[in-house]
Design a protein around this nucleic acid. Structure first.
Length: 205
DNA sequence: CGACTTTGACCTGCGC
DNA sequence: GCGCAGGTCAAAGTCG
């Protein structure tokens, strides 16, 4: 089912061993207790990550175009493994394709604060996964970016985030926040099969 | 009071 | 054609 391109491919396999405790800071506490509200302030990572990080590697694949439909049902569905999604279909109208990015991070929190604001619009239990998938939409007016967040059942420390679309507005919070989220997440590098934390890479600057 | 989350229902596409 | 699964809507509830 979900075969989006996973940027930072992961190899969690032995992952658990590599322990990374984002909690290191202060937040463990916060996150655990504010999960609900967290979304209000944070959540997200779409644009920042989606645009900043991935813009260069957008993948386009025409293969799949099943969609669902007018911006509601459909926007994605099986994606077929590629990055494009069709949306906005109205009967007989052309469907719009949107880039989609997926990546996995190791974090205790589902929601990463990337500076954008997200509103949760749905949650769904998915097959073969003990954890529900959450659906978020960027709250900025006119911005149609969406993201899905799902924790892996086989490794609950790993969170798969899928972004769809590009933000049409500037980030709402200073990039300094990335420092913060970077400390919360760890992305696996499939290349060397080595995991590292963003925090050590400073790839945002 | 506004912004956001929760949650069940509904819609759509796909496989059989 | 039917049933399943994923994705979205929208009403109701919660919180600051």
């Amino acid at each position: 089912m979900e075969n989006y391109p996973i940027l930072f491919g992961t190899q969690p396999s032995s992952s658990t061993s590599n322990s990374y405790h984002f909690m290191a800071g202060a937040s463990s506490h916060d996150h655990l207790h504010h999960h609900g509200q967290a979304a209000g302030n944070n959540t997200g990572g779409g644009g920042g990550l989606g645009q900043g990080l991935f813009s260069g590697s957008k993948q386009e694949d025409p293969s799949e175009s099943k969609d669902g439909g007018d911006d509601r049902a459909g926007s994605s569905s099986q994606g077929g493994g590629e990055a494009d999604v069709v949306v906005g279909k109205k009967k007989g109208e052309k469907r719009e394709r949107r880039p989609r990015f997926a990546f996995q991070t190791r974090s205790q929190v589902d929601i990463l604060d990337d500076g954008y604001r997200w509103r949760k619009y749905g949650q769904k239990a998915v097959k073969n996964n003990n954890f529900p998938r959450s659906y978020y939409r960027c709250t900025h007016q006119g911005c149609n970016v969406k993201k899905q967040v799902q924790r892996l059942s086989r490794d609950e420390g790993v969170v798969v985030t899928t972004y769809e679309g590009s933000h049409t507005h500037p980030i709402e919070k200073s990039n300094d926040n990335f420092e913060h989220i970077l400390t919360q997440m760890q992305v696996y590098s499939g290349i060397n099969n080595v995991s590292q934390t963003f925090g050590n890479q400073h790839m945002f600057q």
